[in-house]
């Protein structure tokens, strides 16, 4: 399937530029060409979406293929959530959907309307940082900072879920967030600190 599709697409791109160069194509040929093109190249669908992010409502149009992560970063300029792997394996894109942590890279934007999304940008209260953000600063919960928005969103959920009874439990319930800098000890300390409050 895949190879056929690639071939057809390439075929279309080549022929389209060649045909485009010829200015005097009869209308009938053009219409026929449009039909062939529509048959070969799958239709793109733009969906009108109303999404609620950090308690603010946005009405936008997005291609059906848009993930929540791309919607946040590319369309809404909310670049806090990071694209680490784009395949569910690192946790850098973690956000809260209806209060529960989820991976925005595996969530289609089309499935988000009607739900409340919270990103790292929505944690602080005005200029006052969220206690978990403060704890990460105090406990050196990061080095390069790339995984940090995902870590903090996951950490806030971890405390809310009550999975903080031991270091082992914290590690188990934070295992969906990888940190290439290895700031793990600081992250665990941050969580213990907030959980103890």
């Amino acid at each position: 399937m895949k190879q056929e599709y690639n071939f057809s697409r390439r075929f279309f791109l080549k022929t389209s530029s060649a045909l485009g160069a010829l200015a005097f194509i009869p209308k009938g040929v053009k219409a026929f060409y449009e039909e062939v093109k529509n048959f070969i190249v799958p239709k793109k669908e733009q969906l009108p979406l109303t999404v609620s992010i950090n308690k603010k409502s946005y009405a936008i149009k997005a291609d059906t293929r848009t993930t929540l992560l791309d919607l946040l970063r590319e369309d809404l300029n909310l670049t806090g959530a990071k694209k680490g792997c784009d395949h569910g394996q690192c946790g850098a894109c973690t956000v809260h959907i209806d209060g529960e942590r989820a991976l925005s890279c595996l969530t289609l934007a089309a499935m988000v309307p009607g739900k409340e999304v919270t990103t790292i940008e929505g944690l602080a209260n005005g200029d006052k940082l969220h206690p978990m953000q403060e704890a990460f600063i105090e406990c050196d919960g990061f080095q390069c900072g790339y995984c940090t928005p995902g870590q903090i969103m996951s950490a806030v959920a971890c405390v809310k879920e009550g999975h903080t009874k031991s270091v082992a439990e914290i590690k188990e319930f934070m295992s969906g967030n990888l940190c290439r800098c290895g700031a793990y000890n600081g992250i665990v300390e941050s969580i213990q600190k907030v959980a103890a409050k």
Partner: peptide, 9 residues
């Protein structure tokens, strides 16, 4: 299995 985020989904 998986991670808390994935299990939520």
């Amino acid at each position: 299995g998986a991670s808390p985020q994935i299990r939520n989904m």
